Amino acid sequence: MAWRKEGISPDYRFSLANERTFLAWIRTAMALIAGAVGIDQLAPDLAPPLLRIGIAGFLSLCAALLAIYAYQRWTSNEKAMRTGLELTYSRSLKVISFIVALFAFFLVVLVIFF
């Protein structure tokens, strides 16, 4: 982490806020993993086994990608604060929100029709 030696150390309050945001993303990733386990182990009648495994796999993959994204975003914000640059706006938040909403709709349809 050579970038930690660049620029000046930001106000600790901003670093701690950035860290709390990172931890919120990680909590969300852990919730997706818990959902995957719950669907696979606790809802055997939700859908056919292959579909249920697919849903659990999709949730697990989303959790992994979200954890990686959380770290990248934390690093990017920390670098920007150290060098005095503006924090970047991320369009991926819209994409993540859309995917979660679409998946929630899909699960509602599964619950109603299976």
Rank of each mutant, 00 (worst) to 15 (best):
G57K: 00
F106T: 08
A104N: 12
Q72V: 04
A29I: 10
L42D: 09
L59S: 01
I39P: 00
F103Y: 15
T28C: 04
A64R: 07
I26M: 11
A36C: 09
A70N: 05
L32Q: 15
A104F: 10
Q72R: 08
A67E: 10
F103S: 15
I68P: 03
V109S: 08
Y69D: 13
T88S: 12
R52H: 04
N77M: 03
T83L: 09
N77E: 09
W74D: 05
D40V: 02
F105Y: 12
K94G: 15
C62I: 14
I33F: 09
L87Y: 02
N77H: 11
I55R: 00
P48W: 01
Y71E: 08
T75F: 07
D40Q: 05
L46N: 03
S76D: 04
I39H: 00
R27Q: 15
W25V: 02
G54M: 14
S60E: 02
L42R: 03
I26Q: 13
A36R: 11
W74H: 11
A80F: 07
G38E: 08
I96G: 14
A56F: 01
A104S: 13
Q41K: 08
M30L: 14
L46W: 13
A34K: 00
L50I: 10
V95G: 06
C62T: 12
A31T: 11
L32D: 06
V100D: 04
C62V: 11
G35V: 01
M81D: 11
L85M: 04
L51K: 07
V95E: 13
F103L: 14
L42Q: 05
G38M: 07
L46H: 04
F105H: 02
S60W: 00
A24F: 13
K79N: 01
L87W: 03
M30T: 08
I33E: 14
V111T: 14
S92I: 11
V108H: 06
L50P: 00
R73Q: 10
Y71V: 10
I26H: 11
V111A: 09
F106R: 03
R91E: 10
Q72I: 09
G38N: 06
V111D: 04
S60R: 03
N77G: 05
T75H: 12
R91M: 15
M81C: 07
M30Q: 15
L51S: 08
I96P: 01
R52D: 03
L102E: 02
P48E: 06
A31M: 14
L32N: 11
I68F: 11
L107W: 00
T83F: 04
A31K: 15
I55S: 01
L51D: 10
S97I: 14
A63Y: 03
S97W: 15
Q41F: 08
F103E: 08
R52P: 06
I26R: 06
L102H: 00
S76F: 01
C62K: 10
K79A: 02
A34F: 01
I112E: 02
G57L: 07
L42F: 15
N77L: 05
T75A: 12
S92A: 11
L107C: 06
G35A: 13
G35I: 00
V95L: 14
S76P: 02
I39V: 15
I53W: 01
A29M: 05
